[in-house]
Amino acid sequence: MHLIKRNLIVSIVSLLPIIWCFSGLVIYSDGKKALAVAALISTVFILIHFPLSNLKNQVLERKFLWLLYAYTLFGLTAYMTYDYGSSQLRTFVAFSIYFTVVPKSIINQINLKCLTVLLGISLTIFFIKEYYFIGITSRVWSINAIPMATICGCLFILCYYFIKKTHSNTLYFYILSLFLVLSTLAIIYSDTRGVWLSILIIGIIYTSNNIRKNKISLKRFLIIVATISIISYLSINSIENRISQTKNEIENIENGNLNTSIGLRLQMWKAGLYIIRDHFITGVGEGHMKLKSELSSKGIISKNASILSHYHNQIINDTVKYGIVGLVLLIASFILPINLLFKNNNLYTNLGYILIVHYAITCMTDVPLHNAQTHAFYFCLIFILTYSFPPKNKLLLSSS
């Protein structure tokens, strides 16, 4: 019994940054700062309790680390020259060191099903805190609604994926169903159209593909659809208001008024393309604000668009600020994980593809790899999906 407790403590302390990404990171706004502390604690603990003889092999085998190293090196260079986000850099430094030293024996103890439940509990705590204790009843949450909706989208995908693979008479099935409902409600009330679009596209394609291949029963599919339909009906006012707002914004744009939510995005994209045309190689860092002000004075964009800090498009945002290197690193953030998932072909390869597509779609209307919470969550999640599960052909049991 004493040995079991000791091993449990060793595992928890060693996995502290990963556990934090599914809990504290999404509960309060300063959770992003505590992540670096958690990584430091785990790194020191691992260095004391585990041999470092496999360190070289781990660096060579974990090619995802190479992307983190590249981001860290570029981030440090950019931070000391023209600018780089301190939250992003802090995460890259922490993850680069932690994911390098954490041993394979610890990584293979990660249970994504348990982490999904932990994420569901943590997001539930966040929304209870927001609505019942702080009294916030709109999308103005203590953590920006767009990145929180993006993470809720990840919870929706995780729950949907595991529900398909879980017996309907188990407690875990009902827990997942509850979190599926809660994540759907959160996504709806966030009024985040980019996440709505992502979940809608993924849901239709994934579900139709599974029905076509008979990987999900019609009964279970109808239960899921009925549940989501009921939730949508109960939230009909929020959905109708957002649709009506979108129609009004499109009409305003057609009449020449670009000072709407969609119109401002179009102006930011236009400004970004102007800046990229002249600064594609190096980017301009925070100097982009001055350049946007100049574009505003020339009447190319409005003053309202010139004061916004990012471009609501990850590709434009990273290319404007960091040039061709930023663009290459961004593309590698999606292409490399897809390649690694394909080569590893583990139990959650398809899940990895879906989550990457989710982030890629949200990158079209937001900057999830710039925001501290969604940025850290993505890189942690990809590392788990890529390295914490043995390949299918090495499994003794096919249970998922």
Rank of each mutant, 00 (worst) to 15 (best):
N144G: 13
Y322W: 13
N252P: 00
W269V: 09
S86N: 04
L381P: 09
F92N: 05
V102R: 03
L385N: 04
I382Q: 15
T319S: 13
L73N: 00
N210R: 10
Y161T: 06
F127K: 05
I324T: 12
N210E: 14
A94E: 07
Y82E: 09
C154G: 04
I175H: 03
V59D: 01
D366C: 04
S86G: 00
L396V: 07
V59Q: 00
I12Q: 02
D366P: 00
K33D: 14
N346K: 02
K343G: 03
Q245W: 07
R6D: 13
H312W: 06
S399K: 14
Y84M: 04
T319E: 06
I205G: 08
A34D: 06
I335A: 15
G285S: 07
T72N: 03
I281T: 11
L182A: 13
L8G: 14
Y378N: 04
M364S: 15
V93E: 02
H310K: 06
S302A: 10
K219V: 12
Y160P: 00
I307T: 15
V101M: 05
L397V: 12
D366E: 15
L308R: 14
S190H: 07
A271D: 04
K164W: 11
L396R: 11
L258H: 10
I134F: 10
N304A: 14
T91G: 10
T282D: 12
I228Y: 10
I384H: 03
I338P: 00
I243E: 02
I143R: 01
N237V: 13
Q373W: 01
K292C: 02
R220G: 12
S183W: 02
A38I: 02
S261T: 14
F126H: 15
H279L: 05
L155Q: 13
R220W: 08
N214Q: 14
I276K: 08
S87H: 11
T137W: 09
K56V: 14
T319R: 05
S190W: 10
L68N: 05
I338E: 05
T386I: 15
L178C: 11
L347D: 10
I338V: 14
Y161R: 04
L67W: 09
W141K: 01
L273Q: 09
N237Q: 09
T260G: 11
T227Y: 00
K129I: 09
Y69E: 03
S238E: 10
G272D: 06
I157H: 02
H279M: 02
L291F: 08
N257C: 05
T116W: 03
N237E: 12
D366I: 00
H2A: 12
I97G: 01
I188C: 07
I199G: 04
S177L: 14
S183T: 05
T246D: 03
R90N: 11
F280S: 13
G256N: 05
V367S: 09
Y378A: 04
L158K: 01
S293C: 00
L397A: 08
L381R: 05
L180F: 15
M289F: 13
G323K: 07
Q373F: 01
I110V: 15
W20Y: 11
K270F: 08
S168W: 10
L336D: 02
F162K: 04
I230Q: 00
I199H: 05
I157F: 04
W196H: 09
L369Y: 11
L68Q: 07
I228W: 12
I253G: 06
I211T: 01
I262Y: 12
T43Y: 06
R220A: 03
